[in-house]
Amino acid sequence: MSIDWITVSAQIINFLILVWLLKRFLYRPVMQAMDRREQHIFEQLDDAQAREQKANEKMQYYLEKMNELARTRDEILAKTQEKAEQQKRQLLDEARLEVAKVREHWQNQVRLEKEELLDNLRHQVSNAVQGIARKALGDLANADLEEQIVHSFIGRLVSLDKESRALMLGSSDDSAEPARISSAFELDSGARSRLTRAIHEHLIDGIDVKYSKSPELLCGIALTVGEGQLSWNLADYLEQLNQHIENVLVSTTSPEKL
């Protein structure tokens, strides 16, 4: 256990050299590297923080925007719904109106057609009945239809009840007009004289009688004295038939059944 002072001094120098060497090659570069890395990490952290803040701000912004969008969407939706409802109502009203119009038009048409049909029918039936009656009367009693009509009219004139007669007479006194016989067909002179005689005998004696032809009477004769009237007319029968047909038509073509 001895101390070699020369070795000691050499070792001191060696140690100091080693301190310098390690400072030069180890401590300084390591410290610098670590500092730089630390700084780098700090920078990155700062950067990350800044980015996070930015991202948060952006998120907030978009959230607000999203809420706003949702709000606007709801508003638009509500408005649109209201508008659609309004339009629906309007369209329904229009459709109803249209339907009512169409129905009215259709009903008018039906009515017109019915009237036309009835009119046609009436004429045809009247003609047919007239023909049939004429033929039947001719065949059965060898009688003329017009003759029979005149006969029937005189019969009616004869069998007039008192009230009707008084009514006709009353109107004749007031006006002092001639009695008018209108018929659907031309009356021959025999018939005319029979009629004039019957009027003179059973209604008003000596009254002037005028004859005229009116086709709308449909095979019949009408006597007009002042405002009183007496007639025998096939149209009356036809009117009954017409009424009957009309009733049948109404019951089969009523809108409820269509």
Binding site: Q11, N14, L18, L22, F25, L26, R37
Partner: peptide, 28 residues
């Protein structure tokens, strides 16, 4: 031997430091 082995230790330490620090990385 004391001085010689001290030198060896010094050279070893310096060499390792120099070799490692030659390719120093400041990244992660």
């Amino acid at each position: 031997a004391t001085i010689v082995f001290t030198w060896i230790v010094m050279i070893l330490l310096t060499l390792i430091s120099w070799l490692v620090m030659r390719r120093l990385s400041t990244g992660t």
